[in-house]
Structure formats: C-alpha cells, structure tokens
C-alpha cells in the first residue's frame, strides 16, 4: 500500500500501526500511563510516589528518543588516528536531550527524597500511609470541615 496516496492522518495512523516510525513514542505513552494509573488508583502514598517516578521516566524516554540519530554514536568525540588529533566524523546523537534528562534524573530523585521524608512524617503523625485511612482520621477529628 502506498502511504503517500492516503490522507496524511490515515497514513500516520498506519505508520504507527505498523511500528515503522514512531513506536518508541507510543511506548513512552504506555509507560507514562502506567505510572499515571498508579498515581490515581492506588491509595498507598509510597505506591503513588513510585507511580510518579514511572511517569517521569516515560518523559525521559520521550526526550532521549528524540535525540537519537540513525547510525549515530555517543556524543563523546573520538579520534581516528593514533595521535588523537583527527575527530571522527560521526554522526553523533543529539547531546542536548541528554543534558536535560541528566539533570532531571538527579532532580527527580531529590523530589522523591522529599516525598519520602513527608511520608515518614505522615506515618508518625497518623500512624498510616493509606490515603483513605488518613482521610477517615481527619474526618473523625475535624467533622464538617470537608476532606483534605
């Protein structure tokens, strides 16, 4: 089937269906949505934090996938002669996405650390880390003030 003869949107859908061009982007959505499901559906706060981690990893995957060049090599220049003077021609992958994600990973573990500190404090204050139980305790202590 000649994709050029079809409507652009139909051709794009067929491209995704055949996993030819952009399957990686579809998979990043899958990973992100697994994390999103965990954030919504799970009552346990640690599970929610893990779901947020999965969500961010999906975004990282999206960025790194964009930086890939076909036949490319790692963006560290390497030499082709013994005196280490001639730089290899490449192509090299796009380093900009790597930089963005490199810092984002370390920042995401920092936010995870703060989340864990808050969870430990919640455990000390309420004796539980299940969202519905915390909500029940709050309702019992402060009736009529609505949910947190």
């Amino acid at each position: 089937m000649n994709l050029a003869l079809l409507e652009p949107s139909t051709a794009s859908f067929l491209k995704v269906a055949s996993l030819a061009g952009t399957y990686n982007y579809a998979l990043y959505v899958v990973l992100m949505m697994i994390g999103f499901y965990g954030v919504i559906a799970k009552k346990n706060l640690i599970k929610q934090a893990l779901g947020l981690g999965l969500f961010s990893t999906g975004i990282f995957l999206f960025y790194i996938s964009m930086g890939v060049v076909e036949g490319g090599t790692a963006p560290v220049w390497w030499t082709t002669d013994e005196a280490h003077l001639l730089k290899a021609a490449g192509p090299y992958d796009n380093p900009l996405t790597h930089v963005l994600i490199l810092t984002a990973i370390v920042v995401s573990v920092s936010t995870l650390a703060v989340a864990m500190a808050l969870i430990v404090n919640i455990q000390r204050a309420y004796g539980t880390i299940e969202e519905d139980e915390i909500r029940a305790i709050e309702d019992a202590e402060h009736p009529g003030e609505g949910v947190i």
């Binding site: 370390v106 920092s110 650390a113 864990m116 500190a117 430990v120 404090n121 000390r124």
Partner: peptide, 18 residues
C-alpha cells in the same frame, strides 16, 4: 550531589520522633 545524597541516607535512616 555527594553530600546531599549522604544527607538523604542519613535522614531517612534516622530513628525516633523528630
């Protein structure tokens, strides 16, 4: 980064109430 990661471990393994 090194010192903050050490702090993170140090704090998360802290015992008792603050």
């Amino acid at each position: 980064v090194c010192t903050v990661m050490i702090t993170v471990y140090d704090m998360i393994s802290e015992e008792g109430r603050p």
